[in-house]
Design a protein around this nucleic acid. Structure first.
Lengths: 350, 350
DNA sequence: GCGGCCCTTGTTAACGCTAACATTAGAGGC
DNA sequence: GCCTCTAATGTTAGCGTTAACAAGGGCCGC
């Protein structure tokens, strides 16, 4: 048995193919890569050799030798941990699959630390940056990125700037759909808790809600609406106000799950039976939605898919820029799902 | 600005790390691969350089250079999502840092789907498996793994088998400490909600609680204890029973956060003021603990660190086995913390 | 018929990492 | 005090591929 000179027992290499075809390895490489400066005759000979030896190029070596290895930065502050991990899963999967490097950087909540973390990332030589929420809406971050000239993709942002690619769901449509769901159950008095005013999605969700009401022939100006800030505590306050109204709404749609959970807690405190006396709908399908009881009807974003899409789009975007950069960054809209659980039902007294 | 000599704009390379740490690239390589012939001081310096530069080994280069790249499977059914996400973060971090591949597989709740998912993972050629709870206690899974001969590490399991490595905290001590905390606030009538009987940690937490009572001179047999199953709903039922007692406990310690959140909801429903009328303590410090209001006093496991440790131990274990396999799998105990938030205080009428 | 040009093919040097071997420094025996 | 032995670190070379440049050869125009 012939012992290999090298360390590893790889399969057929490009050199063996080259030897067999009577050309240089480089020519084989050109054939493999469909470059056009090869004589048909040479090409045929190489092809034959490849067939005979059952040669397959070693992907690791290709990646290493090729220049197209990008370095992708992912900067996050403090989104929901659940969101982040699922997102990361998708992003890592995609980047490892395509053989690119993903560098994850965490930053604090203040504008200064955000800026610092971004600079650190930029200095470490990333070619593109993925921005999950809420950073995707931070103006100063987006401005710094635009200035630096690296590619960026904003995830789950509402209204992206013109310089960045985006992956998101259609928040308007999702809220619209959820409202339709409540309407179809027979609810007419539906309260709404708005999201944080500094995030664009808040507006989109609100408008989806309002438009669905209009379309159903209801007056959106009559709908009880309270301001919330995407956290549990603001949900408690908003729920207190909404549930004190006369007549009391038969359903409440909160712009995210944390606030919906707060509505549920408040309803229980008031002795209301959910969903019999009150239906509650959330948005995001975070952990809490399935934990509490009754479990929340909510809207689910395909988070892992968004992570994959973000990386994939960023790669495209970086290639586009490297290639001269005609056109504009891509926008991608992923499909959301309405998750119907136990917190919604037909109103008891229609 | 210095222009790179090479063709591509790769990220940080092993050479840069080596330069920064003042050693040769080979030494860095040894550190990354956890080889044992490196001085702790050198290793620490290299680690620091890795951290600072955010270095991740290039997997393509590794494969090409002939090192073995392990494939690690992570099989999860449905632990708390929050636990999983943070755990995943740590596991991903560690595996990407050491340049190994992490394959995550989800399975359903039935024994059959668990078995199927495990088989799928094994067939995809993983060299080792990480088992977060509750799978780490599933006998049939552990048996199948033992039969297949791949390495495994059980996370947060109570009593591990002899064939698997484990990472966990001292549940007994943590529950003991939390009980002491409640006692020191002046509580004497403390209710307890047990965890799922099929998980060893439930017992450990219960005993920590009981022993702390005894040591304080209280009769543990007099303590009001209800069975729970680690989910919100079982917490609701248990809380109903505990809060109907006469005299009512002034504090309730639930064996996990989900059940503690249910106690909080029930207390609110009954018009009790938390923490004035009732103190509530949880366990795990999952996302829900900080989300609800008042936020829960609870025990925090260093979950991300456990993820990192699990992967790192698994790598050691796989090398150990490949190297002939003398000795036994490692056991690692990580440190927990008592997180004091707003749900506990001194009882109002002592 | 000869210089310039393009078109094809070859050569060289990486890409980032690690196996195998080489070297150094320190410990310990006699 | 010298020599061996071992543990820690460094050096060299090459994994399989391709970018960048070099070289050869045919064709054209004048």
């Amino acid at each position: 048995m012939e012992k290999r000179r090298g360390r590893s027992s790889q399969g057929v290499t490009i050199r063996e193919v080259a030897a067999r075809a009577g050309v240089s390895p480089m020519t084989v490489s050109r054939v493999i890569n469909n470059e056009n400066n090869v004589t048909p005759a040479t090409s045929a000979a190489v092809m034959a050799a490849i067939q005979e030896l059952k040669y397959t190029p070693n992907p690791a070596a290709r990646r290493l030798a090729g220049s197209e290895t990008f370095r992708i930065g992912l900067l996050y502050s403090n989104p929901s941990v659940a969101f982040l991990s699922e997102f990361l899963l998708g992003a890592l999967d995609e980047s490892s699959k395509t053989g690119h490097q993903l560098v994850v950087e965490k930053c604090g909540a203040t504008a200064a630390t955000e800026k610092a973390a971004l600079q650190k990332l930029l200095q470490s030589g990333v070619d593109g940056i993925v921005l999950p929420p809420p950073l995707c809406e931070a103006k100063s971050i987006l401005a710094d990125i635009a200035k630096s000239g690296v590619a960026a993709v904003a995830v789950a942002a509402g209204q992206p700037g013109p310089d960045v690619a985006t992956v998101r769901i259609d928040n308007y449509k999702a809220a619209h759909r959820m409202t339709q769901h409540l309407l179809s159950l027979g609810h007419r008095a539906i309260g709404f808790i708005k999201g944080h005013p500094n995030q664009t999605v808040s507006d989109q969700r609100l408008h989806g809600f309002l438009d669905a009401l209009s379309e159903a022939g209801l007056d959106p100006r009559a709908a009880p609406i309270e301001q919330g800030y995407f956290n549990y505590r603001s949900g408690l306050a908003a729920a207190d106000k909404l549930l004190a109204l006369e007549p009391r709404p038969t359903a409440i749609f909160a712009a995210n799950d944390d606030m919906a959970a707060a509505v549920l807690a408040t309803a229980h405190r008031l002795g209301l039976n959910v969903p019999v006396d009150l239906s509650i709908a959330g948005f995001d399908d975070t952990l809490i939605a399935g934990t509490i009881w009754p479990a929340l009807t909510t809207v689910r974003q395909p988070i892992a898919a968004m992570g994959r899409a973000a990386v994939s789009m960023l790669l495209d975007e970086m290639k586009r820029r490297r290639g001269g950069g005609g056109g504009t960054p891509a926008q991608q809209l992923l499909r959301h799902t309405l998750v119907e659980r136990e917190s919604t039902a037909a109103p008891s007294k229609p």
